[in-house]
Amino acid sequence: MDAFQLTAFQKDILKEIGNIGAGNAATSLSMLLGQKIDMMVPNVEIADFNEVIELVGGPEQPIVGLMFQIEGEITGVMAIVVEIEEAEYLVQKLTHNDQFRLSEQTDGAELDIAMSALSEIGNILTGSYLTALSDFTGMNLQPSVPHLGIDMAGAIMTVGLLEISQVTDYAIIIDTEIRQEEENHENIKGNFLFIPDPESFQKLFAKLGWN
């Protein structure tokens, strides 16, 4: 399939996938934190590699990235991207420790706790996203173990693009943002970037009967 020729209808299907997947993930996060989580309208982008990195704040933006390879009838990459302060908030909530601090300088045992907590959140969220997607499409999807990195967005995101970069210079991305706000203060803003391999789109559209 030519990556540049997504019809408006195909784009809508992909947006619906973002809605269903991230919606279920947002519900899981909401239950985990006991807080209301909002989900934005998914964005379907056809982007070159440099544009993918701009989507998450540019190549030098410090991020926490959780990367999962997806295997099964649909293959690809799921990336959950949050800023460092937001990852810190998630770790605080999960460990019931408001004093916990996460920065680019965090290391040792503190970093281990953060990595462990964030990986677990990532497992739950990616699991929810893929379960919903699996139910919707009737296709089998499984995530790998999480790969977690705290570093510049360029350095982290390119790893997720390596597999598709062997086939194309463009990625189709289903980008869904979730937010949790309290008294106008934004605590969490996270992005789910679902990047299916190019061959998976045809399978997906065929399975859903809209080829």
Binding site: N50, I53, G58, E60, M152, G154, T158
Partner: peptide, 22 residues
């Protein structure tokens, strides 16, 4: 950028941002 190549002459400089495995 990624998968890009450019040249430069003094006094200008050249850079690339956020190299990971690249």
């Amino acid at each position: 950028g990624i998968a890009d190549t450019k040249t430069v002459r003094h006094p200008n400089t050249i850079r690339t941002l956020g190299l990971g495995s690249c």
